[in-house]
Design a protein around this nucleic acid. Sequence first.
RNA 1: GGCCCGGUGGCAGAGUGGUUAUGCAGAGGACUGCAAAUCCUUGCACGUCGGUUCGAUUCCGGCCCGGGCCUCCA
Length: 460
Amino acid sequence: MPLQFYNTLTRRKESFAPEDPERVRMYVCGPTVYDFAHIGNARPVVVFDVLFRLLRHVYGQAHVTYVRNITDVDDKILTAADEQQRSISDITESTTAAFHEDMDALGALRPTVEPRATGHIDQMIAMIEDLVEKGHAYVAEGHVLFSVPSMHDYGQLSRRSRDDLVAGARVEVAPYKKDPADFVLWKPSAEGQPGWDSPWGRGRPGWHIECSAMSAEHLGETFDIHGGGQDLVFPHHENELAQSRCAHGTERMARYWLHNGYVVVNGEKMSKSLGNFLTVRQLREEGYDGEVIRLALLSGHYRQPLDINREKLAESKSQLDRLYGALRPLGESLPEPGEEGTPEKLLDALADDLNTPLALSALHDLAHDLNKASDTEKAGCAEALLAGARLLGLLERPPEEWFKGGEDNLDVAEIERLIAERLAARKARDFATADRIRDDLLERGILLEDGAQGTSWRRK
RNA sequence: GGCCCGGUGGCAGAGUGGUUAUGCAGAGGACUGCAAAUCCUUGCACGUCGGUUCGAUUCCGGCCCGGGCCUCCA
């Protein structure tokens, strides 16, 4: 089954072929750990999680290496530490833990390798030395800068020439730059700032070099897929690519560059600086299940802008109710989906540039089939539904848990006692009492459903 | 100024040179003591003006509108 993805480098959809099908390699830019992840940050995590699952399905679990870094050295972390009067390690460690919790809640698999910037300072220094030796970087006032004019085809990815950059009004030219487009590889650290000894004095790395160093360390000089949010195309990925190619003397850094679109709020990009963001943590605390957030994030195509709001989350919740509802009648006898059972329609949708909305519609079709299926057909239908959902990272818990899980002031024994009471009333044809019990429960968030096998309940 | 995305029914959101997306919401029906869930039926679309074509929501061009990037960003 051929995979094809839209490649930012060529601005075309291209069929995907890994350099080595035994070892498919993907790098995705991870979080800078200074604050909770907002849903804009969560989008690439979920999108590339689906890609990871798809690649593992196609090439085999053992043949895909997914690297996603943790940026734990950055000036924003310094600022946060100052503001909150906390140590840097305290901030990076607690933020990393919170990130893991939140992304686990979204059903994202952990990457194969999750390298930290602070663990790769030596590799960064070595790479910078290499760039200086090769004439692609120079030292000035304790800084090391990448020389943009030293690279003839700089700007390939973002389609921006060095001249465009220099013409741009927002380029701030530090006095030590030889060329306005040059960017920092290493900068000096003041007393009290984190720093590492280097040939250029005590300092810390610039923003882009860490990804170049970590991807080379864990994936090699060239690899298959490099992913991230659209806002990383320039300058981050452009500069990463420049560093890596110049240091290694390669034609390509990654062969396929994939970028997800923004999460927007009322049509505007969600961002820290605009202050219009919702954190995953916040939504979870409001009672939105991580799976609901995940489905919402997959409800649009990954390259399109996606508006996430409470209406969309409510709709995602009802979609999940429907999907889990189709599985519910199978009770304990849910089949264990195998790799072969993955429905073709869903696989085709994902294979075509990760068309998750189309894949979700396939899921709904399967749920519909399951709802209509005879008892003998049910197992097969359920298996297909579960196998498809697994590829999207959905429907991974027992349906009863989906419907009955959650916290509130009613315990299960109490609910079941009231249901028994109502059953007795119904048997006595005392429908007034029966309906009163049902209404009372509904007011407390418990919805009763009378089926052929008796009454079942769920939390709304 | 340069570069780049979008505009689909009440809402969300795929897709296609001719024919059902899908989900939510709406209408009617089946089932039910009544509901809920489910099933059946059903209405409602492609910003605008041109061009190409037997035929354009789809391809091309202009225009209008919205958004993004141009060294904080996922």
